[in-house]
């Protein structure tokens, strides 16, 4: 009896592998008003850039079969405000290490953000988003080319002592090529997958439904794609993987870990059910026991021969 559901990421021990994904949990404040978010393994803050951003015009959200599209476009108040306000006050409602998600439109912007965060005690991991599909001229541009991905990785790694996890895009021909490039450039781990590029058309208006025309697909619809990519990347690299994409149950968490994830992030499901992470954490030991798992760490990558 008693299932050990703790996991470890680059020397950081998490009570459980459940981590709300960036962009789906804000800075945690709204959810802390619903339940004690200290039960989480950790969470990844809203993607932050050097300069404040409004993001894209609305509509930014569209529904899809078993999922949704978003084209928020990295709305955030800028790294300086996030560091001095949001992160400084986070301790009032969250007392664990947090994952800081950063993005940029140039190497210099990624570096600026990483430097700014390096001395903040509460940050356990810096997650480098080179895969946002909803901004133009940055974001995903770094994540679809192995050389650029390696260059960002090296530059960020050089200015911070924190572990850095590179968040990869699924919108590439071969995700393992990018993953290996990041590993070779010094990444401590990888986060995958970001959203898949998609779109919908408003039939009455005969125009794209999203103001940005395209958006990122997430939700249960993408789970098998995410699982496949985590599985492939696990075989290609030695660094730990945070697996994400459509996870919405304790069984999904276990499946993603069997594919090779050391921890998981939960995105779209938190938007549909704000209590989903709490429910999954409560369910996880029972689900593990049902599958005769005594230590969750034992199943990481177990699906590989």
């Amino acid at each position: 009896m008693g299932v050990d559901i703790s996991v470890s990421l680059s020397g950081l021990t998490l009570d459980n592998p459940v981590i709300p994904a960036s962009g789906c949990f804000g800075y945690g404040k709204e959810f802390s008003e619903l339940y004690d978010i200290n039960i989480l393994g950790s969470f990844s803050i809203k993607g932050t850039t050097k300069h404040p951003r409004f993001g894209n015009p609305t509509p930014r959200i569209a529904e899809t079969p078993s999922g949704m599209l978003n084209a928020v476009g990295l709305q955030n108040p800028g790294i300086d405000v996030v560091a001095t306000n949001h992160l400084a006050y986070m301790g009032r409602y969250f007392n664990k290490k947090v994952i800081a998600n950063i993005s940029g439109f140039s190497i210099e912007e990624f570096v600026y953000c990483a430097q700014k965060l390096d001395s903040i005690e509460q940050i356990g991991i810096i997650e480098v988003n080179i895969s946002c599909p909803n901004v133009h001229g940055g974001g995903i541009a770094f994540g679809t080319d192995a050389n650029s991905a390696a260059e960002v990785t090296r530059a960020v790694k050089a200015v911070t002592k924190k572990p850095i996890y590179i968040k990869l895009s699924p919108n590439v021909t071969d995700i393992t090529e990018i993953a290996v490039a990041c590993e070779n450039a010094g990444a401590d781990g990888l986060s995958l997958i970001n959203t898949l590029l998609g779109m919908r058309i408003d039939l009455k208006k005969r125009r794209p439904l999203l103001a940005n025309k395209t958006g990122g697909l997430s939700g249960p619809a993408v789970f098998p794609v995410a699982l496949r990519m985590v599985y492939q990347v696990y075989e290609a690299v030695k660094i730990p993987i945070m697996g994400m994409g459509g996870i919405s149950s304790a069984a999904d968490v276990i499946e993603m870990m069997m594919a090779g994830a050391s921890a998981v992030q939960i995105g779209a499901a938190t938007l549909k059910n704000p209590y989903i992470c709490k429910e999954i954490i409560e369910r996880l030991p029972l689900e593990a026991e049902r599958l005769r798992i005594t230590n969750l760490k034992d199943i990481i990558g177990v699906a590989h021969l």
């Binding site: 959810f31 959200i61 709305q75 938190t270």
Partner: peptide, 17 residues
């Protein structure tokens, strides 16, 4: 009114100036 996802202020899906 606006299209929303979380509706609790976390996802920034319905922001206006």
């Amino acid at each position: 009114e606006e299209r929303m996802a979380c509706a609790i202020g976390a996802c920034m899906g319905c922001t206006c100036r």
